[in-house]
Write a protein that binds this DNA or RNA. Structure first.
Lengths: 193, 193
DNA sequence: TGAGTTATAGAACATTCGTTCCAAAGTGTG
DNA sequence: CACACTTTGGAACGAATGTTCTATAACTCA
């Protein structure tokens, strides 16, 4: 009955995500989104609501697609300590890859908007908590496996790792050189000893 | 001969700094600056140039006034290890103080603008290097004083501390709770052992 | 006191912003 | 084929953006 959509919602979100990721919320204009997604203004507003609503959809999309992938090894590698180490080393590697100085959309958005936008603040906070819990789970595995001393305060260590992981994203976006980022990561991992 | 200025350049920079610090570059409008500084548009443009030029002046002002103060103890406390510990604990304390979730203007600006603005990127990079060197100096003092093991890689540790200090600012701006931030800081300091 | 100089106040500029509206286009069902 | 319905393209909206202009005010030095 109705005219069918000429676009794929998922790929529109992908494109919108990349613009927000690269430029941030404020610096991204509706015109940018129209240009890059190929989607018409009217269709954008009809399908996603206003700029802010689209942005929140994008944050969710990012969580499910990018964040999930970044933490996949941390969840799936059985050896808890190896899982943590690979997670950081991968982040350091992709963080210094050419033309990929975008950091993490969740961290970027938290920094840009959290102080004045409770909605984004809550999402960023929740994402941090999830990361913290995922690190805690890996740490508990590592303790059980005898790869990390039983004497460690797992919760504090998990918070440290989650915070430091954000730090890696931060330094990556700021364009830190590979050597600095590697030193940073390796010293973080030394905290596991 | 000329009509004298009705404003104090320093206090205008102070006010402008606080707006940029709180809202970021993009979200701060000229109107905001006019309202908050009390300075007229024409006078702003005559004295500081356009928005970007004013922003760069503000970054410099921040470096001299706020950054310098934040790193004063790190430079001045003779005991290198105590200097480092106090620097982090103070940052964690002020970072969770009510209504002070602004983080660090240098970190914020690097995150927001570095990927697309080489000028800001260079300034943020230089600020990081300065912090790294200041931490390295304190670490060297601590090693000489026998407060930190001789076996440590001071350069890597300095990079770690500088990166982690940015992380504290990040978490503070994102509105992390006090307990999380304390755990984060204490674990960072454990790396000195 | 008046000439010279610069700051001030605020109107005015073109452009871009986010958003809405409307007519045309495309689909499946009666 | 025509109806009901939704998407599409693009014009149009007012408000806000960064910036400039003009006229007036305030001061110092001759």
């Amino acid at each position: 009955m109705p005219r069918p959509r000429a676009f794929d919602e998922e790929s529109v979100l992908d494109n919108a995500m990349n613009i927000f990721w690269s430029k941030g919320f404020e610096a991204t204009s509706i015109q940018d989104l129209v240009n890059e997604t190929g989607l018409n203004r009217a269709s954008m507003y009809a399908s996603f609501g206003d700029k802010k609503a689209l942005f929140l959809r994008v944050l969710d999309h990012y969580s499910q697609k990018i964040s999930a992938e970044r933490f996949a090894d941390l969840r799936n590698i059985e050896d808890g300590r190896a899982a943590i180490e690979k997670t950081f080393r991968d982040a350091a590697k992709t963080g210094t890859a050419e033309g990929r100085h975008k950091g993490c959309l969740m961290v970027n958005s938290g920094m840009e908007l959290a102080p004045h936008d409770p909605e984004t603040a809550a999402i960023a906070h929740q994402a941090f908590r999830r990361a913290e819990d995922t690190f805690a789970a890996a740490l508990n595995r590592a303790v059980d496996q005898g790869k990390i001393s039983k004497g460690k305060n797992v919760r504090a260590l998990a918070r440290f790792l989650a915070g430091s992981f954000q730090g890696v994203q931060l330094m990556s976006r700021r364009g830190a050189d590979q050597e600095t980022l590697q030193d940073y990561c390796e010293t973080i991992l030394d905290a596991l000893d």
